[in-house]
C-alpha cells in the first residue's frame, strides 16, 4: 500500500524534515546557472580559471547510435558539458540563503560520460566530477565555509575511482582597482585529500553511449559547521567529519546557501555530467 500510494518521483529520496527545493529537469532549468568569476570593468579582469565554465543545458541524452535515452524519470536532465580541452571544467550553481542553521542534505541522481566522439570505451576520459556547498553564517557571521566532494575518476592514464575532499584553497586575488572585489579559485588540482574509503568503481557500462544513473547524498550541519558525510549508491561514509575550506566571513554573503556541481575532462574531449533530479532538504 505504501509503495503504491507513494509519489514515485519523491519516494526514491530520503529527505530531512522539510524540502528547500526539489528540481526535476523535465520541468526546466530550475535556477541552475553558469558559474562565473568576479570581475571589474572588463571580463579580462577575471581569474582565467573562471572565464569559461560553460552554460548548463537540458539534455534528452540523444546518442548518435541509439537515439534518445532520456533521463532516469522523464526525458530531460541537466547537462554540464566541458570544452574539449584537458583540464577544462563545466560548473553549474544554484544560489539560495538559509533561514535557520540546521542540518542540510543534498540528494541527486546523476550520471557522467565523455562525448561519444570515438568508438572506444573511453573509461579514462572524464577526470572528475563533484559537488560543493558555499556557505556563510547568518547574523554576526564568523566564517564562510565550502565543503567540496569530488569523485576522481581518472588521472592521466590511471584510473583512480576515489572520493576526495578539500581542506584548503588558493590565496585571494584582488580584482580590478576599486578595492571592492576579490576572487579565489577553489576547483584547482591542489589540496585534494582521499576520504578514508576504498575505491568505488561506478557503473560506467561498456561503450560511451550507455549511461546508468547513480544516487548521491551529501550531509552538512550548518550550526556545527560540520561536513558530516555522504553516500553514493551502496557506499556510505559516516566517519569523522570531512575537511572543508574555511575563511573569515565576507561582507555581503550572510546566510549564503549555494550548491554547485562540476565536471572536469581528462583529455581533449568534452566531459558530460547529467542530473536527473536534485533535492535539498533541511531542518528549518
Amino acid at each position: 500500500m505504501t509503495v503504491i500510494s507513494a509519489d514515485p518521483r519523491l519516494s526514491r529520496f530520503d529527505p530531512l524534515r522539510r524540502i528547500y527545493f526539489y528540481d526535476d529537469f523535465d520541468d526546466g532549468m530550475n535556477g541552475w546557472s553558469e558559474l562565473i568569476g568576479n570581475y571589474e570593468r572588463s571580463l579580462d579582469s577575471m581569474l582565467p580559471e573562471y572565464a569559461d565554465m560553460r552554460p548548463p543545458m537540458l539534455s534528452a541524452q540523444s546518442m548518435w547510435d541509439t537515439g534518445t535515452a532520456g533521463s532516469m524519470q522523464g526525458t530531460y536532465s541537466l547537462k554540464l558539458a566541458s570544452r574539449a580541452r584537458a583540464g577544462a571544467l563545466a560548473t553549474s550553481i544554484k544560489r539560495l540563503t538559509f533561514r535557520r542553521r540546521g542540518r542540510i542534505q543534498l540528494e541527486c541522481y546523476f550520471t557522467f560520460k565523455p562525448e561519444a566522439s570515438e568508438l572506444r570505451l573511453s573509461l579514462h576520459d572524464v577526470r572528475a566530477f563533484g559537488i560543493l556547498f558555499d556557505l556563510q553564517d547568518g547574523m554576526n557571521p564568523e566564517y564562510r565555509w565550502m565543503p567540496h566532494l569530488r569523485y576522481l575518476n581518472a588521472s592521466g592514464d590511471s584510473m583512480v575511482n576515489r572520493w576526495q575532499m578539500k581542506g584548503a584553497t588558493r590565496a585571494f586575488s584582488k580584482i580590478g582597482d576599486s578595492g571592492e572585489t576579490v576572487s579565489h579559485f577553489h576547483l584547482g588540482a591542489e589540496n585534494w585529500e582521499d576520504i578514508d574509503l576504498p575505491p568505488q568503481t561506478l557503473a560506467y557500462n561498456e561503450i560511451a553511449t550507455k549511461m546508468n544513473w547513480h544516487y548521491l547524498r551529501v550531509s552538512v550541519d550548518l550550526a556545527a559547521r560540520s561536513f558530516l558525510g555522504f553516500q553514493c549508491n551502496d557506499l556510505v561514509y559516516e566517519g569523522a567529519p570531512l575537511s572543508y575550506i574555511k575563511m573569515p566571513a565576507m561582507p555581503n554573503l550572510n546566510c549564503m546557501l549555494n550548491t554547485a556541481f562540476w565536471v572536469e575532462t581528462n583529455r581533449d574531449k568534452r566531459a558530460f555530467f547529467y542530473l536527473d533530479s536534485v533535492l535539498l532538504s533541511g531542518e528549518f
Binding site: 543545458m57 537540458l58 534528452a60 540523444s62 558539458a81 570544452r83
Partner: peptide, 8 residues
C-alpha cells in the same frame, strides 16, 4: 561556437 543541446 560550442554545441548547445536544446531539443526542448
Amino acid at each position: 561556437s560550442e554545441p548547445y543541446e536544446a531539443a526542448w
